Measured scan of single mutants.
Amino acid sequence: FDIYVVTADYLPLGAEQDAITLREGQYVEVLDAAHPLRWLVRTKPTKSSPSRQGWVSPAYLDRRL
């Protein structure tokens, strides 16, 4: 999967189903980028939180090589 970094805090609107909150600087794996406005991502697990999966706007993501 492609690795992206979150460029700004992402707080989903209440109406968005299956969306997750992301923090600036967080790394995520993009699982599904087929839709231009919503990408399915999975967060990297940390010592304090397990990995999470949900939909985010790709405008908040920047690809890492």
Rank of each mutant, 00 (worst) to 15 (best):
P58S: 08
F1T: 08
D62W: 06
K44E: 10
V28Q: 00
P50A: 09
L37F: 10
L37A: 10
D2Y: 14
S51C: 08
R64M: 14
L40H: 04
Y60M: 04
K44G: 06
V5I: 14
K44R: 14
Q17M: 12
D2L: 13
G14N: 12
A19N: 09
W39L: 01
A19I: 06
H35Q: 08
G25S: 02
V56E: 01
A33M: 14
W55S: 02
I20N: 02
T21S: 14
T43P: 02
G54R: 02
S51Q: 08
P12I: 09
A33N: 13
V6D: 00
R42A: 06
G25Q: 02
V56C: 07
W55G: 01
V30F: 01
L40Y: 09
P50R: 06
D62N: 10
E16M: 09
P50H: 06
D62K: 15
R38F: 09
Q53W: 08
K44Y: 15
D9G: 06
A15K: 11
T46M: 07
Y10T: 05
D2C: 14
W39V: 02
T7D: 02
L40S: 01
A15R: 10
G54L: 10
R64T: 14
P45I: 05
P58N: 04
V6R: 00
L22R: 00
Y4Q: 02
H35N: 15
L11V: 15
Q26W: 11
P58T: 04
D9E: 05
K44C: 15
H35E: 08
L65T: 13
H35S: 15
L65D: 14
A19Q: 11
V28T: 01
A33K: 15
P36W: 04
K47S: 13
R63V: 11
T43N: 02
S57D: 15
A34D: 10
P45S: 10
L40K: 04
P36Y: 04
F1K: 08
S49P: 02
L13N: 14
S48A: 10
Y4W: 13
K44W: 15
L61H: 01
A33L: 05
T43S: 06
G25N: 03
V56K: 00
D62P: 02
P45D: 09
I20P: 04
I3P: 03
S48N: 14
Y10C: 06
G54P: 00
V56W: 01
W55T: 03
Q26P: 00
S57C: 09
T7W: 05
A59C: 11
R38G: 03
P12Y: 06
V56F: 03
L65V: 14
D2V: 11
R64V: 15
V30L: 09
T46K: 05
V28W: 01
E24G: 07
P45H: 07
A19H: 13
Y27I: 14
S49A: 11
L40T: 00
D2E: 12
S51M: 09
P36L: 06
L13Q: 13
T7Y: 03
L31I: 12
R23A: 08
D62F: 08
K47A: 14
A59R: 09
E16F: 08
R63M: 11
D18C: 11
P50F: 05
S57Q: 05
T7M: 09
T7C: 12
L61S: 00
D9F: 04
L31P: 00
A33Q: 12
L22Q: 01
S51E: 07
T46F: 07
K47R: 11
Y10S: 04
E24P: 10
R42H: 02
E16W: 09
G14W: 12
V41I: 07
D2K: 09
D9I: 03
K47E: 14
T46I: 05
Q17P: 13
R64L: 15
A33Y: 11
I3D: 05
D32M: 06
E16Y: 08
T46E: 10
H35C: 11
L13R: 11
W39S: 00
E16S: 09
V5T: 04
Q26L: 04
G25D: 02
Y10W: 10
P12N: 07
P12M: 04
E29W: 15
R52E: 13
L37V: 06
L65A: 14
S57E: 09
P45T: 08
L22M: 04
A34S: 15
W55C: 05
T21L: 11
Q53H: 07
Y27S: 06
R38P: 00
A59Q: 12
V5H: 04
W55M: 05
D9Y: 04
Q53V: 14
T21P: 14
L65W: 14
A19P: 06
W39N: 00
T21G: 08
W39I: 01
G14K: 11
V6K: 00
R38K: 10
R63I: 13
Q26Y: 03
D32H: 06
R42N: 03
Y60F: 11
G14I: 12
V5S: 03
E24M: 14
P50W: 03
L31Q: 02
V41T: 01
L40V: 02
A15D: 15
Q26T: 11
E29K: 05
S57P: 15
L11E: 14
V5W: 07
V6W: 01
A59S: 11
R52V: 15
G54N: 02
V6A: 07
T7L: 12
L11P: 15
L61V: 03
L22E: 00
S51I: 09
G25L: 02
L22C: 02
I20H: 03
S51H: 04
L31N: 00
Y60N: 07
Y10R: 03
S57V: 04
L37W: 08
S51W: 07
L65G: 14
S48T: 12
D2F: 13
H35F: 07
